[in-house]
Design a protein around this nucleic acid. Structure first.
Lengths: 196, 196
DNA sequence: GTCTATAATTCGATAGAC
DNA sequence: GTCTATCGAATTATAGAC
């Protein structure tokens, strides 16, 4: 079964998305050229347009598929349990899902400004759904008398910031394993909202 | 005292820096063109180069002057006091200095990747000095028996992330005043590191 | 100090051969 | 499906008139 020379449809698509994700996260959407991406994939720039309509849609699809994937997993993970257990699973999920996907989460937070209005609105909705998972856990914990939260919205956003800041400094081959970092971060979160 | 038509040296310089700071923070360094900046200033693009050697140096000088300004103020503010009081002043300073300068802090965190290697190294050094202020306060608090910190470095970075995340969501004319937000954030920080 | 004009490059995206 | 070639537009930065 002969194949036309230079035809690699099955691998070029995924390689394109991987290269774009990595380069966008590294240098920023606006600073990355389609020629750079093509170079990483190993094709000429024209070939990329067999897989994407344009650069903006490429960015949008990368952010959308990542957020949907993470949200789906989170939905399953948080389906049952008390506030304490669900909080622990949220922190675990957040750290362990994102650590091997640092590029994706950097995109989700840094490149919102690179999205055209319509795409921006769709992505913001997904991000909001993610935050609402944590907010729901805090509400549950307050109702159970386990947590003390002075302001639900502020605490939610503050804890999201705490947990997400990790991906700005953590190094894979550093002093601490992901499991150790998770334990340290969970401890900080748990104490910050502990009921007296 | 006649002035040449179109000559406004005293105001074009500051207006250039203000416009660049705002646009860089809003859209990202790579996405902003010199013509956009010139348009905001109210001159043609060629006139900008009477004040800056190039775009990269403009970015570097904006980040450098902001960080130096903030660090100088912090040095003074943290010169004396116990760990609890110094922590309170750090949180106060961080929030109240940066809230009216959201553009500057977004630049300092988001546009490191847009700096050329030499400029990057210089800015990283300043950022590190800022983190070390907080780390010193935590060390002091542990020595005083006030704080319990499982891992000094991780806790420092986690709290920096918590405090800096604020600038990603806080809206000036929102539900809460800066003073109220500061109190809520300080409470979270204080509880997260409270000694038992 | 600011303007107009332009040099030299590079960008995203497309057309047509294979 | 990939390639080469290219279009039209936009980019940073500079030169020289005023």
């Amino acid at each position: 079964m002969a194949r036309k020379q230079g035809s690699h449809a099955e691998i070029t698509g995924p390689k394109l998305r991987e290269a774009a994700l990595r380069l966008f996260a590294q240098s920023g959407y606006a600073a990355v050229t389609m020629r750079q991406i093509a170079g990483e994939v190993g094709v000429q720039v024209g070939a990329l347009y067999n897989y994407i309509p344009d650069k903006q849609t490429l960015l949008y699809e990368l952010m959308k598929s990542h957020l949907e994937e993470v949200l789906d997993a989170l939905d399953v993970e948080l389906r049952t349990g008390g506030a304490e257990e669900r909080l622990r699973r949220f922190v675990h999920h957040h750290i362990h899902v994102h650590l091997p996907r640092r590029d994706a989460i950097r995109l989700a937070y840094d490149e919102l400004r690179s999205l055209e209005p319509q795409n921006f609105a769709a992505i913001e909705k997904l991000r909001h759904a993610y935050e609402n998972h944590l907010q729901g856990i805090l509400e549950q914990g307050v109702a159970e008398g386990l947590f003390r939260v002075a302001d639900l919205r502020v605490t939610t956003m503050a804890l999201i910031g705490l947990l997400t800041g990790l991906f700005g400094w953590y190094r894979e081959n550093g002093r601490l394993t992901p499991v150790e970092v998770e334990a340290l971060y969970y401890d900080l979160v748990r104490k910050a909202i502990a009921a007296p």
